[in-house]
Nucleic acid binder design. Structure first.
Lengths: 187, 187
DNA sequence: CGCATTATGGCAAGGTATTGCTGTATCCGG
DNA sequence: CCGGATACAGCAATACCTTGCCATAATGCG
């Protein structure tokens, strides 16, 4: 059964990848058998979803970092600063653990990014008085100013990236990505 | 005008990030004003789209690499091997330039991954006879066997990740991500 | 034919993702 | 009170993302 499944999968991957070859050229084309519910078609579509996620993420970091490069920031620093700029976070700050959960990154990855933005004077890390293990991360005054200055470039980037999307489409994309994030977060 | 736009944006970012704070807890909640077409609501939704893209990508790499870890592979190696296993690519191989375009990664990033999988004996790199600058990248026999063995784990991963998605939803997600990838690829 | 320009791929440097492990702080039960 | 278990954050190692730059190969024009 497992062997038959693998062979079956391989056969349909053959057909899927043939379609993917065409997708490489960014030709707008419907998948051959969308919505028929057969397990093999599901593999096919899933493969495309995850491959596009990979591609889109690579391009987001490349283009997004360019968009905020005048501020000397990267997309990851943008995400950290955005999280800290929220009104619920700006006064009390956030712990490393809270930021990790919010950004879906590992502690060590976050520690590196925080080290960088702290070095740039954009955030401060202070030991919490009530618990000596915890670090409270907050934007500095420079960080807040930098963040505000970044918002115009961020807005321009969003406009350019989603120029062909209707509001309903952008909302659908958000909602589907939200559900995917939840699902992956539980695996 | 630009200043007014920035202040306007900041005000609505305030409201958006308040919603994002709730989203952190993965509570399923509709955006407050989806679809009304106002520029500030667009910033709001765009912000969520890109943040979810960031989160989903982080989790995909984390969970996906675990899914293929028995084969000693990472998600990026999976993507490279998948590209090379396609029938259009398997005999003649692909050049570095073709792989770069397909995966939406930089040459240097790809060179690193290729170096790794070549070291594992999964791919071979040969100079093309007709053009001495070009490298032809192909799966080895071991690479092909490893790829086939990986497909069962890949299928199981897809099933787990998209278990709550209908075929139509998965297809919609693919199509929207496809359009986003195209858009970002042109920026 | 020769030279300037363009194309291809890889080294170098820097930033960010993961897991494994460790030191310090806190909590809870005996 | 004390010790074992748990929580928090950061160092170490590895893998992958970017841009800048360079050596070699190929092309096109005068």
């Amino acid at each position: 059964m497992r062997i038959a499944k693998s062979i079956n999968m391989l056969l349909y991957f053959y057909m899927a990848t043939k379609t993917l070859t065409r997708q490489t050229k960014m030709v707008d084309r419907r998948p051959a058998r969308a919505g028929d519910g057969a397990p093999d078609a599901r593999f096919d579509v899933a493969n495309r979803v995850f491959f596009r996620l990979y591609q889109a993420s690579n391009l987001m970091h490349r283009t997004g970092t360019r968009a905020v490069s005048d501020h000397g920031a990267t997309t990851q620093q943008w995400a950290v600063m955005g999280a800290l700029a929220r009104p619920g976070a700006s006064a009390a700050g956030l712990s490393v653990k809270e930021l990790m959960a919010f950004l879906c990154v590992s502690r060590q990855s976050l520690t590196l990014v925080l080290g960088r933005v702290e070095g740039l004077g954009l955030v401060e890390r202070a030991r919490l008085e009530s618990d000596g293990r915890v670090r409270r991360i907050r934007l500095t005054a420079l960080g807040r100013r930098t963040w505000r200055a970044m918002l115009a470039d961020i807005g321009a980037y969003y406009t350019a990236a989603l120029t062909d999307f209707s509001p309903a489409e952008a909302d659908t994309l958000f909602r589907l990505l939200d559900r995917l994030t939840k699902s992956l977060g539980q695996m």
